[in-house]
């Protein structure tokens, strides 16, 4: 994490000679075809999440005896679950939950992680020592175990699941930001700023923070997918988002798995939804890393 990147210069170089915004976007899409696919998938997720009420053909929680385990086709394009709830509508509404969990926990995790990491890496001394121990403690537990204990402590609800997933992200983010900050402190331009008498906090905010943005964005996009997966695992173990919220992970768990051969659509469609969302987030994350962190550019 020692490379300093000037994004605008890099981006200008990448899109050299192209003027219009649309043209630039087209150029980026051609340069990073996988990233463009990822972006499209992610935008699809956002779109479904934002306009679920308009897009979904039915109410996602209304049960119906007549439609129990209905096969795909007819009024239920993707079939219906055991309680006769429309799968398509549930998957569309599920996008909202995955989005909330993915983006929500990433933002919360990054926010506290950045504050801790920046302060710890810049201030050093006692503060660093204490936060480092704190981070070590939190990192000494596997993410899922940590999330499990948190989920059990907080009780099952959407908000608590977001918090439970965000907490294990904090040490992860803090660690990367701290090590980046550590190497930045040694950089000539920071030393120069010190030499001309800039205050410590100003240096941290004006010079160090902007230069940690790139790794932060890389990290955040990478976390997006894993947050969605963690939610799915928690829900599978019965500790995630409770019924009747149409969480994809919950849709895959327990009861759905039981009826898999009688009604394979119960397992296939939510599984595809999760995989596509995480796949999109990962593709996007890779492309963002390639753009912002050219050390690893292919």
């Amino acid at each position: 994490m020692t490379k300093i990147v000037n994004h605008s210069v890099e981006l200008a170089k990448a899109g050299a000679g192209v003027e219009s915004r649309l043209g630039k976007a087209w150029f980026m899409a051609r340069t990073y075809p996988l990233g463009a696919i990822g972006l499209l998938l992610f935008l699809g997720l956002v779109f479904c999440g934002l306009f679920a009420d308009l897009l979904a053909p039915m109410d996602p929680v209304t049960t119906s005896a007549a439609s129990s385990l209905a096969a795909p086709g007819g009024i239920h394009a993707l079939g219906a679950d055991m309680m006769g709830r429309d799968m398509l509508s549930r998957i569309i509404h599920g996008a909202r939950i995955s989005l909330a969990v993915g983006v929500g926990s990433t933002i919360i995790g990054c926010f506290f992680g950045v504050i801790l990491g920046l302060a710890s890496g810049y201030l050093l001394g006692w503060f660093d020592l204490i936060t480092q121990r704190f981070i070590d403690i939190m990192q000494a537990l596997p993410l899922l175990v940590m999330a499990l204990v948190m989920a059990a402590a907080l009780g099952p609800s959407l908000e608590n699941t977001v918090i439970a997933i965000s907490i294990p992200l904090i040490p992860h983010v803090a660690r990367v930001i701290r090590s980046n900050t550590l190497s930045l402190r040694e950089m000539p331009f920071v030393e120069a700023a010190k030499a001309i008498g800039m205050s410590e906090s100003r240096i941290a905010l004006k010079h160090v923070l902007p230069n940690t943005l790139a790794p932060l964005i890389v990290l955040a996009t990478a976390q997006l997918g894993s947050a969605i997966l963690t939610e799915a695992s928690l829900s599978f173990l019965g500790l995630g988002i409770p019924e009747p919220h149409p969480s994809w992970g919950r849709m895959l768990s327990e009861s759905a798995a039981e009826y898999v051969r009688a009604a394979p659509w119960l397992v296939i469609f939510p599984g595809i939804a999760i995989s596509l969302a995480v796949f999109g987030a990962n593709l996007l994350g890779d492309a963002v890393r390639d753009i912002l962190d050219p050390r690893q550019r292919s």
Partner: peptide, 10 residues
């Protein structure tokens, strides 16, 4: 417990 509760609410 949960499955019938969902129907009840409906």
């Amino acid at each position: 417990y949960r499955d019938p509760a969902v129907i009840l609410i409906d």
